[in-house]
Structures are given as structure tokens and as C-alpha cells.
Design a protein around this nucleic acid. Structure first.
Length: 590
RNA sequence: CGGGGCGUAGCUCAGCUUGGUAGAGCGCUCGCUUUGGGAGCGAGAAGUCGCAGGUUCGAAUCCUGUCGCCCCGACCA
């Protein structure tokens, strides 16, 4: 049966909704695919549901081809499994929690590693049962601090999440590769550009992790890539450390007065004026060591001050630092923090003083100290002397101070060298549409998922988890496929194969249109039929454009002469065809 | 959580400075006309002006509080 526009639950809107910023959000609402229900919550209308179902169909087909089996878990789950793995606490405010009538704690699952693991533990106990990959397409819930951009970041969203279970490391690699390959096929079929980037695996506790990013200026993820093929999420980018310098013969550190130089800029100007370099080159911000005091908030709520040292020409990147300290939170230290720690002289902090080390657990400030990878042994810096209006020259790493370790704490810049030697990187924005993880044994260990191997020994299963954001993909496709008139769906996910528009006041056009609709349906096409009487052609054409079915068949003024028009929504091209040829032309195309 | 903005009809918004019976366009209903690019005329339905308190003879408008939403940042598999 064709879908008749006269009865379809749809109202297209002439104005952009006031709360929408990006094209996909505006158009999906205006074209009647979705409606907002609350912050980050959307209802799906008939058109939207069809597109979403098409995305899910592609995912299901490729999951099946990759040997994954579909299951379905509740979105509402008891907290216990999440307590065992620590995620009940780790998620903090990030999940929706609720109680039943007996006050037992539940959550709306943000992701399902725990219960998949437990289900496999319940049913399987032999290596012969593995490998196994199971998946579901299920709504997920996250209490996002700030939902935004319509479907791109919602608090309820549909995700395909797959989990692989293997007895061996080699098995995990194969299972991971099978999902990764499936993802490439899925995105190719959906016509979506993507870049596979190295991701930070730390938070999920795994060994290898890659994200599929769709490059887009509205994306929330920054990633870097080099012409030589390196690509990484900016949080996973690693800095090449320069070679260490032998300490012998290096000049000693010397403290100097530096009145009114609380910033890097003022300091550089001052040393160039008062302590110029012997070699004639001017000092730059990159010669200074900037020490920034941060506060970690650990899972138990305790607060720990730390310091990071990095070249003064770089800003700190808190997101990259978070990776190093996950799951602890990181924020800049407050005035109160400085007030409590007298050894930290704001504006003049350095790792070293004439009285000995200052930063570091054994230093005067008694806080842990980490440095950027560029701060290698033998590198000498201009840095704070821990006395108000005093700095020091030639403070040398490995001699005057020793850091607890190196961490990635500095911003990444376009032009920085890729760690694999493939050249300088540039920085772009992307939308995460898929993520594959080698989880390893973290969850299996915590939940006790073991199988007997061929020697009769119990071994812990190794796992992978693989996500695709289904609702997000609907938005991304809309974002990538529209013009100023409306949506333009790729045929694989379009809500209909063809949109038949009957226009005119003569009953003949409607009779001919009905026959064409029947013919198209008989040939297997999904048809949207604009059968509305007394609606002007302009309105019908406008609705066809905003709805975005790629193939439009206009039955109108030419119908009496045996002609209809084929309208390609993407190119705008209209072709007159004989009524008798119309069905074949369309179904061949589709 | 920090900064900014906004809450008035289904939607997009005006009115608020300077208090005096609630407005427009779109959409919706009915009638007539119109039918290849969001049509015309006429007649309608539709709003606790986010909420609560206060000032006042009188509050959408002024004051206080509060809730919500949007944007930027922070956060975010």
C-alpha cells in the first residue's frame, strides 16, 4: 500500500524551530521527521521512523554478514553488575538512576558491557563455544550535561552495540577486525565519509581503540591527521620527545630578579632585555617552562593538587590531561588551593629553587609533578624560582628537578609532527559515528567470565565492544545530504523510493497518478503519494523538496498528453517521460 | 558548574523602555474563487503572557524569588 500524504501523520513547518542551530536539526523538525519532547529527547514521526529503520536494516545486514547474532537486553537494569565493575560510581552524574517501589537501585543503561558479559557467563563455559559476537540495537540513556545539536547529542539515543568474546588474544584481534570491516561496509553503504582515528582506550580499560569520525565542522571531536596516513583523536595524539642532552658541561641554574613578570609574555620580554642569550638568538616563549597547578577529583571525592610543566608557548589541554588521570576529573586549581599551599607562588612557580625541589612529592609543595614529553633530560628552561618576582635561567631537567613522569598535557597544533613520522598533522572536526574497542579482560575479570581451554584450564575470556550511533547517523546523513530547500536522502535510507506528486484540478491527473502508484508498488517500490486535493502545486513541490525523497514523479499538466515528469531531487533535473515508461524508468533506477 | 540570551496562540515573533480590556505572519476550521512554485477574498477557533510572591485602583509590562529552555565554555562511549 502506498503512503498517502492526505493521511500521513505529518506537518511540515515553514519556519526553522527557534531551538535548532544546525541544518540537520532544523530540517528534520521542519520536514516532520522528529519532534522535541524535552532536552535531548525526541519523538520519531512516521517519516523519521522509516529512515531510522533503514539505517538499522543496513546495520543488521552487515552484522549478520560478519557473523554477529542479534539479541535484546532491557534498557532498565539493576545496578549490581555495574557496581561490580565500578561503573556505577564512575559514571557519576552521567547516567539516569532510579528506584523501584522497594527502593532498589536501577539505571537506564548507558551501554551494556556488564550484562552481555554476564549472559555469556550464564550460558557458556568452554572455549569450544567461542568465538562469539552478539549485538543489539537498543536505546541508551545518558544524562548529558548539555544535550545539543538535535539528534547529534541526545540523552536518549539508539545504538547498535556489539560485544565479542574470545578465549585468546589472536581471537580478539580477528573478532575486532571482523567488526571493523563490517563498519567500513556499513558506512560505505550509507554513503558516509569517515576517517578511522586512533582513540584513547584508557577510560574503557582496553588496549586498542579506534573511532570512526565523519568529518564535519559541526562535530564535537577534534582529530589530527597527516598526509602520510596518521589519524588520531586529539586526545590520543602523542608527542614526539626530542633526544635527551648529556648533562655534562651545561650551565648552572641561576636565579634572577624579574619584577612584574607574572605572565609568559612579560617574562620573555624581560629576559630578552636583561639577560640576552649569548648566541644572539632571542628567547622565546618556547624556552620557558610553564608550570600549571591543577586539581584532580578522584572517584572517592578526594581532591589532589598536581602540577604539570610544559613549554611556555603551549596552552594546557585539560581534555588530554583527563585521559592520563581517568577516571579522575581535572580542573584548574582555585585561589583557595593556592592559599592553602604556601610553597606555590602564583606566577612564579618552578620545579626548582635554591633551597631544593619545590614541585614533586618530595619537594616543598609536596604535590606530584608531571611534564610534557618535550621536557627531556638535559633540556634547560627559564622558569619560576618560587619566590615572588624571581625566575631562574638554565633550570635543567634531570639535574635540577625530576618529574614523576611525562603526560600529554599540551595543546596539539596544526603542523606538529605525527608520532609515526608521517609528517605534520592538521586538525579537523568530526562526528563520532562508530567506535571499536579491544576491551581485553577487564570486564570478564571483574565479572568472572572464564571458560575451560583445550587443556582443561580455566582462562579469562577477552572481549571487544563495538558501537554505532544509529540516531546520530540519521542526523549525520541529513547533515551531509541537504540543500537550502530541504533534505536529500541517499536511496539506501530514504523513507520512500519515490514520491509521486499529483497536481492539477482535473480528476484525470489523480486517476493517472493512482495507476502509476499501483504500478510502482507492484514493481516493489515504496511509494509516498501526494494525493491531496486542493493543495497548490507550490506547496506540493515545496513539501517534496523538504521531505527529500530522491526520486519524485510529477503527474500534472502533461498527463493529458501522456507525459509525466521525473524529478531528481539531488540534481534538480526534470525529465519528461511517457506515462507508459515511467514505472520502468524509476524501478530500473532504484 | 561558569558566561550570555530567551520564556507571549500549534510554529516564528512583536508588544515591555513610558503599567490601562492580548497582537501580527504562518498554520488550523468554514464558504467562494484559484491549481506548474509556499494563491485571493470573507468569516472563525485558538493564549493562566513559564510559575510564585510583591508594588499598584490596575501588571505581559515594574520589583523579588523560582523553574525551564537555547547558545558558548567545562564535561561527555
Amino acid at each position: 500500500m502506498p503512503t498517502r500524504l492526505s493521511h500521513l501523520f505529518l506537518r511540515t513547518l515553514r519556519d526553522d524551530p527557534a531551538d535548532a542551530e544546525i541544518a540537520s536539526h532544523k530540517l528534520l523538525v521542519r520536514a516532520g521527521y522528529i519532534r522535541r519532547q524535552g532536552p535531548g529527547l525526541f519523538a520519531w514521526l512516521p517519516l523519521g521512523l522509516r529512515v531510522k529503520a533503514n539505517v538499522e536494516r543496513v546495520v543488521r545486514e552487515e552484522m549478520a554478514a560478519a557473523g554477529a547474532q542479534e539479541v535484546h537486553f532491557p534498557a532498565l537494569l539493576p545496578k549490581e553488575p555495574y557496581e561490580v565493575t565500578g561503573r556505577w560510581e564512575e559514571y557519576g552524574d552521567g547516567i539516569f538512576r532510579l528506584q523501584d517501589r522497594k527502593d532498589a537501585d536501577y539505571l537506564l543503561a548507558p551501554t551494556h558491557e556488564e550484562v552481555f558479559t554476564l549472559m555469556v557467563k550464564d550460558l557458556y563455559s568452554s572455549y569450544k563455544d567461542l568465538p562469539l559476537t552478539i549485538y543489539q540495537i537498543q536505546d541508551k540513556y545518558r544524562d548529558e550535561a548539555r544535550p545539543r545539536a538535535g539528534l547529534l547529542r541526545g540523552r536518549e539515543f539508539t545504538m547498535k552495540d556489539a560485544y565479542s568474546f574470545d578465549a585468546t588474544d589472536e581471537g580478539l584481534i580477528a573478532s575486532y577486525q571482523a567488526q571493523r570491516d563490517a563498519y567500513e561496509r556499513i558506512f560505505a553503504r550509507l554513503g558516509l565519509d569517515y576517517v578511522i582515528v586512533q582513540a584513547d582506550a584508557g577510560a574503557m580499560g582496553g588496549s586498542r581503540s579506534e573511532e570512526f569520525l565523519h568529518p564535519s565542522p559541526v562535530g564535537e571531536d577534534s582529530f589530527v591527521r597527516s598526509a602520510g596516513g596518521y589519524a588520531a583523536n586529539i586526545e590520543a595524539f602523542t608527542t614526539i620527545a626530542p633526544p635527551a642532552i648529556p648533562l655534562e658541561g651545561l650551565p648552572s641554574a641561576e636565579v634572577f630578579d624579574s619584577p612584574n613578570t607574572p605572565t609568559i609574555e612579560s617574562l620573555v620580554a624581560f629576559v630578552n632585555a636583561e639577560h640576552p642569550r649569548a648566541d644572539g638568538r632571542a628567547w622565546t616563549a618556547a624556552d620557558t617552562l610553564k608550570n600549571v597547578v591543577l586539581a584532580l577529583t578522584h572517584l572517592d571525592g578526594s581532591r589532589e593538587l598536581i602540577a604539570v610543566g610544559l613549554p611556555g608557548d603551549r596552552e594546557v589541554d585539560l581534555a588530554r590531561i583527563e585521559v592520563a588521570f581517568a577516571p579522575a576529573g581535572v580542573e584548574a586549581a582555585t585561589e583557595a588551593d593556592f592559599a592553602k599551599n604556601k610553597a606555590l607562588v602564583k606566577g612564579y612557580i618552578g620545579p626548582w629553587a635554591t633551597t631544593g625541589p619545590v614541585l614533586g612529592e618530595t619537594g616543598a609543595a609536596r604535590i606530584r609533578y608531571f611534564v610534557d614529553p618535550r621536557v627531556v633530560e638535559g633540556s634547560a628552561w627559564i622558569t619560576g624560582a618560587n619566590v615572588h618576582e624571581k625566575h631562574a635561567l638554565f633550570v635543567t631537567a634531570g639535574r635540577d628537578f625530576v618529574a614523576e613522569g611525562t603526560i600529554e598535557c599540551a595543546e596539539v597544533r596544526a603542523g606538529d609532527p605525527a608520532p609515526d613520522g608521517s609528517g605534520p598533522v592538521d586538525i579537523a572536526r568530526g562526528i563520532e559515528i562508530g567506535h571499536v574497542f579491544q576491551l581485553g579482560r577487564k570486564y570478564a575479570e571483574a565479572l568472572g567470565l572464564k571458560v575451560l581451554d583445550e587443556n582443561g584450564k580455566l582462562v579469562t575470556v577477552t572481549m571487544g565492544s563495538y558501537g554505532i550511533g544509529v540516531t546520530r547517523i540519521v542526523a549525520v546523513i541529513a547533515e551531509a545530504n541537504h540543500d537550502d530547500k530541504g533534505l536529500i536522502w541517499p536511496s539506501e535510507v530514504a523513507p520512500f523510493d519515490v514520491h509521486v506528486v499529483a497536481t492539477g484540478k482535473d480528476d484525470v491527473v489523480f486517476d493517472i497518478a493512482e495507476q502509476l502508484v499501483d504500478g510502482l508498488e507492484a514493481a516493489g517500490a515504496d511509494v509516498l503519494y501526494d494525493d491531496r486535493p486542493k493543495v497548490s502545486p507550490g506547496v506540493k513541490f515545496g513539501d517534496a523538496e523538504i521531505i527529500g525523497v530522491p526520486v519524485i514523479l510529477i503527474v500534472g499538466k502533461g498527463a493529458a498528453h501522456g507525459l509525466v515528469e521525473l524529478w531528481d531531487r539531488r540534481t534538480g533535473e526534470r525529465t519528461e517521460v511517457a506515462i507508459s515508461d515511467a514505472v520502468d524508468r524509476i524501478t530500473m533506477k532504484a
